[in-house]
Design a protein around this nucleic acid. Structure first.
Lengths: 208, 208
DNA sequence: CGGAGGTAAGCAAGCGCTTAGTCAAGGCCC
DNA sequence: GGGCCTTGACTAAGCGCTTGCTTACCTCCG
């Protein structure tokens, strides 16, 4: 999942013009921010007139809400899948971080909107996204707490450490540049090692 | 420095109305973002008419530029002071992270503008801020590289690890809430431990 | 009395969104 | 099969409002 094409999230959206609007909105919101993006800009990226946006979406905010919702759901699904895949707490943490980081790199445009435009969402849409975020944080916190309980990690405060681990991934969306030298997979592997170190897990080949 | 009052950065700005404009702009930009903030909003926070903004600043963008410049300069000064204060690479890294994180918590409103409104800056102002950012990253990278050379840290890639360490601090500005249970100093201490672990420095009391 | 600090009023431009309509594709009855 | 209506996608034009910023003027203090 974390390594699919950046636009794969919208593959199911029909009709095609509606999907082009979404992709254009993601690009514009990620580049300039929600408030600096005009509906005319989004429509132009989709190759349509300004009014065409309102054929497919009731408002500019509804577009943002759909992007945020879909993005948060994808991130949560990815985290829960990684947790289910791992054998023990340490492997689970490694998998979660590797996938979470790689996703934020591969989908850095969507991730930018997801992470930095929460405040621009209408109240109900924000509540939905915030709830999904809490489940993501909860999954990581539980993994760290499990590891501590099992004696394979050391962390005085699993909640705060989990938040810090997630910060690593979230901030990738801010600086990641696909033209740079970091591949999403390599970045995920590096950050999985860093996270393992943060929780005091035994070294496993790692960063050294 | 990292523990002074949030508004201490502007103490030297005269006249007072000009300072109130700056403080109001920081609050508004941090809450809603640069593009969603109106000049009328800034002026109202300063208790003045909309036109008064232009008595003190040539444009809304100039206000942002001043905030970004002052903020980046403060962050760089703090990092360089911490590096100068530490005895060895590990202590230097701990001091840098502790102060950088505490600063992002204490000044989370300024830090939000500094970290997330770079793209809204006019080209010349952005170039100035980007140059300061590179010096911050360079200082941390050098500290990690020193530690590896001295054999007190392990990190295959000091540049990428330094970037990850800074991500921890930068992301604090996104989520920090002064009404929460984290004091800037405690957060700085926790994150200094996490950073020491990330670079494979010997445990020093730490998170365990 | 000059200059710094301040304001009321308002301008041009751009904003999100609406209106009224075009047009092609498809169903349907006689 | 031809006429007729519906439907979904789309657009030209533009409405009402807000934006950043300007102008012309006022006030007060050294």
């Amino acid at each position: 999942m974390p390594h699919t094409s950046p636009d794969a999230l919208w593959a199911a959206v029909e009709p095609e013009a509606s999907r082009r609007m979404l992709v254009g909105a993601v690009d514009a919101f990620a580049e300039r921010g929600y408030h600096a993006t005009t509906t005319r800009d989004i429509a132009a990226r989709a190759g349509l007139s300004p009014a065409a946006l309102y054929v497919h979406y009731p408002s500019k905010a509804a577009l943002l809400a759909q992007i945020s919702s879909t993005g948060h759901e994808a991130a949560l699904a990815l985290v829960e899948a990684a947790v289910a895949r791992g054998a023990g707490p340490v492997e689970r943490l490694r998998l979660v971080v590797a996938d979470f980081v790689a996703w934020h790199a591969t989908h850095h445009r969507i991730a930018r909107v997801v992470q930095y435009e929460l405040g621009a969402l209408p109240d109900d849409a924000r509540a939905h996204s915030v709830a999904l975020r809490r489940r993501i944080e909860g999954a990581v916190e539980a993994t760290v707490a499990d590891g501590v309980r099992a004696g394979v990690m050391t962390a005085a405060d699993p909640r705060r450490v989990a938040r810090a681990v997630l910060s690593l991934g979230i901030d990738v969306a801010r600086w990641y540049d696909p033209a740079g030298r970091d591949s999403p997979a390599a970045l995920g592997a590096l950050y999985a090692d860093l996270a393992a170190r943060m929780v005091g897990a035994a070294p496993a080949g790692g960063t050294q």
